[in-house]
Amino acid sequence: MGEPRHAAETMIEVEDLQLRYADERVLDGLSLRVPRGGSLAIIGPSGCGKSSLLCILAGLIQPTGGRVRIGGEPVERPRPDVALILQETGLLPWKTVWQNATLGLPLRQAGVLKRVKRALRDLGLEGLERRYPAQLSGGEKKRVSLARALAQDARVLLMDEPLAALDALTKEHTQNLVLKLWKRHGFTLVLVTHDIEEAVFLGQRIAVLSPRPARLVALVENPGVGTEDYRQSEAFFAKVREVRALLQLQEPPLVPRLRAPSK
């Protein structure tokens, strides 16, 4: 507590993080910082350890080495101020919208019920409370996950490829929605994605990771984030090209170069 406060207070602090499964190194000395209310997009080759990193931040896996702090406190278990949204199976199919949105929340505590109702209303889910996930569109499902995070009043929102399965138009709408919620509620956002444009649209910083074991290859500053119009700007396309170039350096060619036919 006695530490000096920085100009932009650090919300998430990852230092020299190590993770190995059996004898496989998945994370090898990863360090990252996200300021309070900031956003970080993480992008990297498949299998490099992005989901594992989010699980560590969510307190679901213990790292084998290094330090993780959120809001100045070490992360040891899941915390009510940190929300996690997973790709496809984040909602429980056997629970209704209402049951999913309130899962694990202390409904009897003052104000919680009101917060849930407001979150559902804000995300246009009013009237759908009794439906099951199978009765929702892809976009509606994402909005239920977001409503849950808002109902939880999370200070940190962790998203693991949340929009991967959506069609292009719904994806764009939902990205706009995430941007709006991030600006309005001021939570700290960490977004894992395979989608370069999504990373550039939502990440004030973009962490480009190497193949397993994941190391930080580059941390791209992306100050243009914050408006829906950013998507249309030259600066946006330049950033997309920059990140793509960094990623292509990482990815080994999928197709082995063809040998010249021997005569």
């Binding site: 929300a83 996690l84 997973l86 790709q87 496809e88 199976t89 429980l92 929340l105 939880q152």
Partner: peptide, 9 residues
């Protein structure tokens, strides 16, 4: 993922 998101909740 079902178990993970419920634990995270």
């Amino acid at each position: 993922d079902y178990v993970l998101s419920a634990l995270a909740a």
